Simulated scan of single mutants.
Amino acid sequence: MLRTVSVTRFASFQSILAMCALAFLCLSVACNRGKETAKVKGPHPASDGPGINVNPNPHQTGNAAAGRDVYRFETFGNEGFWTDAARLPKGMIDAKFTPKQALEAGLQIDIEAIDPNMRKMLEEELRTDLSPQNAPLLNDPKTMVALVNANAIVGIVAVDSSGDKKFDIMNGDKVGISCTICHTITDNSVFNMPNGGSVGRRVDGPAALTLNVGKLLAMANNSRAFYPNLQQTFLGVSIGRAPSGLGPNSTEAEVDAYLSNPQFYPIGTFDETQDGNGNPVKNVPLFRQDLAAPYGTAGEFRLLDDIG
Rank of each mutant, 00 (worst) to 15 (best):
T61I: 15
G77P: 10
T186N: 09
N277Q: 02
T4C: 06
C20V: 09
A65E: 09
R68L: 07
T61C: 14
L286Q: 03
N53P: 05
D204P: 07
P262C: 01
F234G: 00
Q108L: 05
K41A: 12
P89F: 01
G163H: 07
A207K: 00
N171R: 09
E123L: 10
N57Q: 14
M144F: 15
N229D: 02
P228F: 04
T143P: 03
L103A: 08
M219Q: 05
P266Y: 11
G77L: 10
A38K: 12
K96N: 13
I109C: 11
E124V: 06
R201M: 04
P116E: 11
E104H: 06
F81A: 11
V190H: 00
T75H: 10
G51Q: 03
L138N: 09
T75W: 12
S15D: 13
I177H: 11
C182G: 08
A95I: 00
E123T: 09
F76P: 05
K39F: 01
S244C: 01
P228G: 03
N55C: 10
A64S: 15
P266S: 06
V5F: 06
C26K: 15
L27H: 15
D94V: 12
K142Q: 08
T143L: 03
R68G: 02
F301T: 02
P266G: 07
S47V: 03
V5I: 11
D94E: 12
E125N: 11
S12F: 08
D160P: 09
F270N: 00
E74S: 05
N63D: 15
P132N: 03
R288L: 09
Q101M: 07
M170Q: 15
L126V: 13
A11K: 13
E123Y: 04
A135R: 02
F13H: 13
V157Q: 09
N32W: 02
D110K: 07
G276L: 00
I307C: 12
Q263C: 02
N188K: 02
S162D: 10
A11Y: 11
A23G: 06
M144G: 14
L211I: 11
G299Y: 12
A225F: 03
P50S: 00
H59D: 09
P206Q: 01
C31H: 10
F270G: 02
A66Y: 11
T98C: 04
E74N: 14
A38S: 14
T184D: 04
S238M: 13
A253T: 12
V203F: 00
R33V: 14
N222V: 08
V29S: 08
L103T: 03
R3V: 15
